[in-house]
Design a protein around this nucleic acid. Structure first.
Lengths: 249, 249
DNA sequence: ATGTGACCTTGATCTATGTCAAATTTTTTG
DNA sequence: CAAAAAATTTGACATAGATCAAGGTCACAT
């Protein structure tokens, strides 16, 4: 259980033995089981926009995101689409114990996946206690994140939704690094459309609200996908969330 | 892994040794570990409307619902409230690995909880592989459910939301029993307000849409909280979900 | 450097759902 | 059983965000 970041963000690990060092990747490479996992591992890359798997497809691989951003989503018959997971480096892809994917997975930017065949991975899952423990922790963290997302979808205004998404992205990019609350800059690796799918809005509303936040001085935009926040607390105040972020006793 | 219902509904177990026999309860009573768990168990009841734990409270117990309906929810500073979990018998309450509750839990009807102290339960969790395996499976199932809920909150119309909620409740009550698609009757153990919190609507909209479905002959109401569905497929068609429920190859 | 397509912005209008308020029905309680 | 309380329905009206329709901007390929 060492090396795992404690909280709402998905568990991530710096794995010295990993081919790609110094990077949050493949949270499963416990030193002791390294050989096993190492043997099973394969990497695959996807171009921005490519599908990784469709809902209903047979799920041959599971794995985790090494670089880039992928998204989990659900589409209704008439085309309405809702993102239900945003997968950043170290996030797990796939569902051990199920043979078919329940959701679409697409590459949002170029993506590298560290993959394991599902069947042998499931075998390891029952053989290696550590692995199961980590999977449980990750699943529980994702569940908490999903529940916050539900509050966002069900009750927040468009402006609050945008502010919330910006803080989520800001936090995940500056995660271990800058915890200082001021002068944060980050890249939005998402189109307005992807944001609208995340937030349950239309892309027009996303555009309007981003520009409203800009006009009100809450954010500044260098390029259309690069955000400056001079006063993070100010942005936080726009999210509608509890000021203390749930850390009251 | 025996005795566990395979799919989207939370894992449930009929445990012969349980004080309360013949009932989906305490999914953790593996025969072999029975003595341990039995010793730790305590039951507590809550009256309809009672809080079970508040967000931010120290979490002393975890456990599972034995009878009744409880709900997990999140409240914003200004009172906006979103349900993020509906807990029926056999559902787990609490989050091993966290000392404080992230959500409010309230009894919707009278509720009996089968409780374990969190600390010793966490100890068992690392000692008993089976237990961890079940917890993982339950967490993953809940995650899938949460993601479908996100689609509902983000993209469905009020009418679709109501129809979806009705099918969810119908299915969970008639779960193992009537899989026949016709002439289903079930109790809505939820007030219009609770439904509105589930669906991200106001109670007025819930009332109007329920009566619209009634007027259109999709459902019939005996009492205000008892629903008759003569043609389940008809109701399903109103949910906006894929006709086959995700069971295409 | 110019054209082409993807992405983003902006405006005008529409509509589903929220809000506020008041009946009506059902349940609970003394 | 009567009265009070709680839950539900219904109506009139307001509005946030959707929809439809241009137009603008940017990156990249020819």
């Amino acid at each position: 259980m060492k090396n795992i970041t404690p909280n709402f963000t998905p568990a991530s690990v710096n794995c010295d033995e990993c081919p790609i060092k110094d990077r949050a990747v493949c949270a499963y490479c416990e030193k002791s089981e390294m050989a096993l996992l190492e043997a099973m591992k394969s990497y695959k890359t996807y171009a921005a926009g490519d599908p990784i798997i469709f809902a209903g497809d047979r799920m041959v691989f599971v794995g985790s995101v090494v670089t880039g951003v992928a998204r989990l989503s659900q589409t209704m018959e008439d085309g309405r689409k809702q993102m239900v997971g945003l997968l950043l480096p170290s996030d797990f892809v796939g569902r051990p114990g199920r043979s078919y994917s329940a959701f679409d997975v697409e590459a949002t930017t170029d993506v590298t996946l560290c993959r394991f065949e599902r069947k042998p991975f499931e075998k390891l899952l029952s053989d290696i206690p550590n692995l199961r423990e980590r999977m449980l922790e990750m699943a529980l963290d994702e569940l908490d994140a999903a529940r916050e997302w539900m509050l966002l979808l069900g009750r927040k205004t468009a402006r609050e939704k945008i502010a919330s998404l910006l803080t989520i992205i800001a936090r995940r990019q500056n995660s271990t690094a800058t915890v200082s609350k001021n002068d944060i800059t980050f890249d939005l690796n998402l189109t307005r459309e992807a944001m609208s799918e995340y937030l349950g809005l239309t892309l027009e509303t996303v555009s309007r609200q981003i520009n409203a936040l800009k006009k009100d001085g809450v954010i500044r935009l260098e390029k259309k996908r690069q955000v400056h926040v001079k006063d993070f607390a100010r942005l936080l105040a726009e999210t509608g969330d509890d000021a203390d972020g749930g850390f009251l006793a």
